[in-house]
Design a protein around this nucleic acid. Structure first.
Length: 238
DNA sequence: GCGACAG
DNA sequence: ATCTTGTCGC
């Protein structure tokens, strides 16, 4: 069960194999050591910004700027950045190869580390049950929750009424893997994904708690995105 | 064959 | 992800 087994694979085929192992281990990890939202946890967030003006959805070698932050309530307790050229192009289901290494570098430098980490990616909602949010948590040994604008393979209708706090489940083969969560009244809901050591219910609770009624995107992710883009700009790529 | 496809 | 354009609202 060592996290070493989950290190970022050097090929698509290797990643696919790791994902199958990860999916099984994630179920065991959740059963043995479930993370629950209690008290005022430090909630982390991470984001990767790519050079502007590139053609297509991304290539191997693209320059990227990543940022990770940790917030306790609205107070910033830690912040870090990482700059790398990513090793792979973007491909649905294989996002970990492209963004995993740089996110691990950024989040790994956070001191102190967060109690739970929000990642712009899916978790159980994945062709092999192991999206980047879950994978990153396994490697870092940190509970994670995924946040995306839409599902990858899961299905489920959005909440009927866009009132902050409204939720609606999303499923993969009859299994609930996350929830649509309306974080801001009158704004389209986001998907909160069960990740490493987190249930779909905890994912939804965490995303709502980490959001303010004024911003659709959870604060840790919003802050990480801002820091990543600012870093990109200071590098003369924005 | 055609469209869809986390970021 | 990034880009463009348009609309609504504080």
């Amino acid at each position: 069960m060592g996290v070493d087994a989950y290190s970022w694979p050097g090929s698509d085929d290797e990643l696919v194999e790791v994902q199958y192992t990860l999916a099984a281990d994630a179920e065991a990890a959740l059963a043995a050591q479930p993370w629950t939202f209690d008290g005022q946890p430090a909630v982390g967030g991470c984001f990767v910004a790519f050079a502007r003006g590139e053609s297509g959805p991304g290539h191997r070698g693209d320059r990227a700027w990543a940022a990770a932050v940790s917030l306790r309530g609205r107070a910033i307790v830690a912040q870090s950045v990482a700059v790398q050229q990513v090793p792979a192009a973007y491909a649905p289901g294989l996002l970990a190869r492209r963004e995993g290494p740089i996110l691990q570098a950024a989040v790994g430098d956070l001191r102190p580390g967060p109690d739970v980490l929000l990642v712009d990616a899916t978790g159980l909602d994945h062709p092999r049950g192991a999206g980047l949010a879950l994978h990153l948590g396994a490697i870092l040994g940190v509970p994670t929750v995924g946040v995306t604008h839409r599902t990858l393979v899961a299905s489920g209708a959005v909440p009927e009424h866009l009132r902050r706090g409204a939720t609606a489940p999303v499923y993969v083969r009859d299994r609930c893997v996350g929830y649509w969560v309306c974080t801001k009244t009158a704004a389209r809901a986001v998907v909160a994904h069960a990740g490493w050591r987190t249930s779909p219910e905890t994912a939804a609770e965490t995303v709502l708690a980490a959001s303010s009624s004024r911003a659709r995107t959870p604060l840790p992710l919003r802050h990480a995105r801002r820091v990543a883009r600012t870093t990109r700009a200071s590098a003369g790529a924005g």
